[in-house]
């Protein structure tokens, strides 16, 4: 998986880091990154400390991916990196070099909602909408690995996605219905 590509690796003996080196470590020198975003080849320059979510939101202005915390708890920033769900705040932008990234904006095709998106609307699986993109991206990864998840499996899978509005019940219903629609659509 391209995400594992370590661009940032550096071996330094502790204590040897001077200000210049820190500056380099902090990535104040822009570096080019190229990747596929929702099927489109894109590239830009970022500081090496730039997070993937910042790259998506600020460089490519795909603001459907949200930031809800700074400790990787909330899951509002979940995207797919080479087909797997990843909290995009836990990954550096440069780690995504060459990767295939899909965000919530890339889920519907030609204006037609994905069955999982439809299911969230049909089952009132969202209220304020802030956690929703991350929920949907997580749910899609769950169903990819487990096409017929039960309630318990859904609830456990979504442990890393916080929602403060819905009490989760309608999200669970939506994921279940979305999974069913995806099964019958195949």
């Amino acid at each position: 998986m391209a995400a594992a590509k370590a661009v940032h690796k550096k071996t330094t003996r502790p204590g040897a880091a001077g200000p210049e080196e820190l500056q380099q470590q902090d990535g104040l020198m822009p570096t080019k990154v190229s990747l596929t975003l929702n099927g489109e080849a894109v590239s830009t320059e970022v500081d090496s400390r730039t997070l993937l979510v910042e790259l998506i939101r600020e460089n490519f202005i795909k603001t459907g991916t949200h930031v809800g915390c700074d400790t990787s708890q909330c899951g509002a920033c979940v995207v797919h990196v080479d087909g797997r769900s990843v909290k995009s705040c836990t990954m550096l932008a440069l780690q995504a070099e060459g990767a295939d990234i899909r965000t919530i904006e890339g889920v519907a095709t030609d204006g037609e909602l994905h069955p999982m998106q439809e299911a969230f609307r049909e089952h009132h699986g969202l209220q304020c909408g802030y956690c929703t993109p991350g929920m949907i991206m997580s749910a899609l990864d769950l169903v990819k690995n487990n096409p017929d998840p039960d309630d318990r499996e859904i609830r456990e899978w979504l442990e890393g996605n916080l929602c403060r509005c819905t009490g989760y019940q309608n999200i669970v219903r939506a994921v279940k219905a979305g999974a069913e629609a995806m099964r019958s659509g195949e």
């Binding site: 795909k62 603001t63 459907g64 965000t103 904006e105 519907a108 909602l113 969230f120 609307r121 909408g129």
Partner: peptide, 9 residues
């Protein structure tokens, strides 16, 4: 919902 589920909020 449409704008939220498509990332267009």
């Amino acid at each position: 919902d449409y704008r939220f589920i498509t990332g267009n909020g």
